[in-house]
Nucleic acid binder design. Structure first.
Lengths: 200, 200
DNA sequence: CATTGACAAGACAGATCTGTCTCGTTTAGA
DNA sequence: TCTAAACGAGACAGATCTGTCTTGTCAATG
């Protein structure tokens, strides 16, 4: 998929480098993959990598940005499919998340994994991971508010824990594992969370 | 705490190296810490490290073993404090787990973090992390069975997701964050989980 | 067509990593 | 007390890492 194409120019080189690095970093760990391997596997030149990224850290940040974009693009697609039914949207969001977390070869949330590889002094990289997490919290709060439940902020936090937990256990267990219970978990949470407003 | 003592002999050297490595690996990431830094911070000699551990991977495995022992020692202590009250025991377990996950400087589950740093080819290290996770699942199933709920295996899986999720979000958020909702999450799960057997 | 800038390929430097080895010194036990 | 093993300190080798630089080629544009 991200193998060497004919001859790339301009920002296509950058995109291809980010694609290759994203896969390698995710599968092997950020520190375990050197820039030489990114260069070799992408078929690009080392000078091209350093033309687009001043340092490896900048490449890592670009990879996180790419993963962020992909994640929320998928999220927005599900949201658009259920414009006026927050309960159906939440179910759909949890559906693809559970499917992702239980997929073979899944290795956990890239942001949690990347944050774990860097000490707190790396504020740019760890801050970028925290930003993704805060955005997930923000979207969950917005969604639970639209659900009309009484304590939407509490439910949002609990769903947050559940989603990140499914990612984490899905990244460790080979294929089976508790991550397949994510949707059932959310349903149970909502079952004891009566709606405070009228329900159509 | 793990600073240089006077002069250690025998297995005390090994223990001190594991202590130092556990802290450094956890705070900075396994790959970000070289054996030279473990040697320097521990005050031990490099030859001593390689006398007790054939390679850095063996040191990593010993660190995981140490963390496993500490974790289940704490678990067993709480279990012993509530010998005949599984509901109180579960509450106590979730209590110290939530306190740990929301503690300042917490950086997530060491097993999840370590597994993320190694590709699937490292079966010994990743397998050791999976072993900890399976043991958590086993203990949760045993505990929910004693609770007497109808679908104890399902509840155990859901608690598993919640605990690992609290660890993961606690490792990313600075201090506030959704991890403080772990116990409330579990209480909600159990509220819709009526006991199937008689209840004293 | 000619020019210019981006590209692939890879040598190179300096730092850092893992792992081995040497060399005194210290400690435990005969 | 004497000896042998374990220890701290650190040099050393070979591999690997990040980042720079050179060289020749190719593609887009005037």
């Amino acid at each position: 998929m991200t193998d060497k194409p004919r001859q790339l120019r301009g920002v296509a080189v950058r995109d291809h480098l980010v694609d290759t690095a994203a896969r390698l970093f995710y599968e092997n760990g950020t520190h375990a993959v050197g820039v030489d391997e990114v260069v070799r596997r992408s078929g690009m030149a080392k000078a091209s990598l350093y033309r687009w990224f001043p340092s490896k850290d900048d490449l890592i940040l670009a990879v996180l940005q790419r993963r962020d974009d992909d994640f929320w693009q998928r999220w927005d697609a599900e949201a658009a499919a259920h414009p006026d039914d927050p309960r159906a949207e939440l179910d759909a969001q949890l559906g693809w998340i559970e499917e992702l977390a239980t997929r073979d070869g899944y290795r956990g949330c890239a942001f949690v994994n990347t944050a774990a590889e860097f000490d707190p002094g790396k504020v740019d990289i760890r801050g970028r991971c925290l930003q993704h997490e805060r955005e997930l919290g923000r979207r969950l709060r917005e969604l639970t508010q639209r659900l009309g439940v009484a304590d939407s902020a509490l439910l949002a936090d609990q769903l947050h824990i559940a989603i990140v937990g499914a990612f984490a256990v899905g990244g460790i267990y080979p294929s089976d594992g508790p991550a397949a219970r994510l949707r059932q978990l959310a349903h149970r949470l909502m079952a004891v969370c009566p709606e405070s407003a009228a329900h159509g």
